[in-house]
Amino acid sequence: MKLNLKIWRQKGPNASGKMVDYQIDEVSPDMSFLEMLDVLNEQLISKGDEPVVFDHDCREGICGACSLHINGEPHGPGRGITTCQLHMRSFKDGDTIYIEPFRAKAFPVVKDLMVDRSAFDRIIQSGGYVSVNTSGNTIDANATPVRKENADAAFDAATCIGCGACVASCKNASAMLFVSAKVSQFSLLPQGQPEAKERVMNMVSQMDEEGFGNCTNTGACEVECPKGISLENIARMNREYLKASLTSK
């Protein structure tokens, strides 16, 4: 099939970018979206043009690297998938496809469609861990009882791959779904308790410092999240933060 592509091109972080039109023929419906972009890039390179820069790594929906805002939605029209899992059979011959980088003040464009998501790393560094000594005195995992429902909810929260689609979809460019998933995966488990208060306080303050917006509970993030992270996590973080603010010294 033939497609009209409108792609954001930007030479560097400080350059001003613009949408550029491309035509691509002979796209197979079996190609993934990223493979389609690979074909486009080969065409561009053979013509002596700069290829379109975009993020990708695992290409199987587990790393969170591939981003892209496709036809008005992060990771395109599908649900529960990343861009590498989006296939060209989701489009029709002759379609026009808008391809833009994830937009947020906290996710500055590096080049073309690639954005810098290290704000997420800094949020994790501010508290997204448990301090455990691994030197010889490891405790058997089953020695600490955990309620099944909590274990399940913690596991669900831990499936977040840090892709940033929640930020990209949110009208406020809020990182609440990501941060709340990372807070929840620990706060639901006994191992997360000793550092619970500092964790939520520090992660929220880092989130604010990075320039993400607030949560209006529109629920867009939950719909666009490739891993189905639930909005309930955001409410849990609100509760944890309130508790920590009121009770920590």
Binding site: M19, H69, K105, K171, A173, F212, G219
Partner: peptide, 27 residues
């Protein structure tokens, strides 16, 4: 809040489809 939230996305999308994932009144 509304001002801060606008500032969190200085560059808008050329093509956005917010209706696909949220109710208009919430936005």
């Amino acid at each position: 809040l509304t001002i801060r939230n606008r500032k969190a996305r200085p560059q808008k999308y050329a093509y956005n489809k917010p209706g696909a994932n949220s109710a208009w009144n919430s936005r």
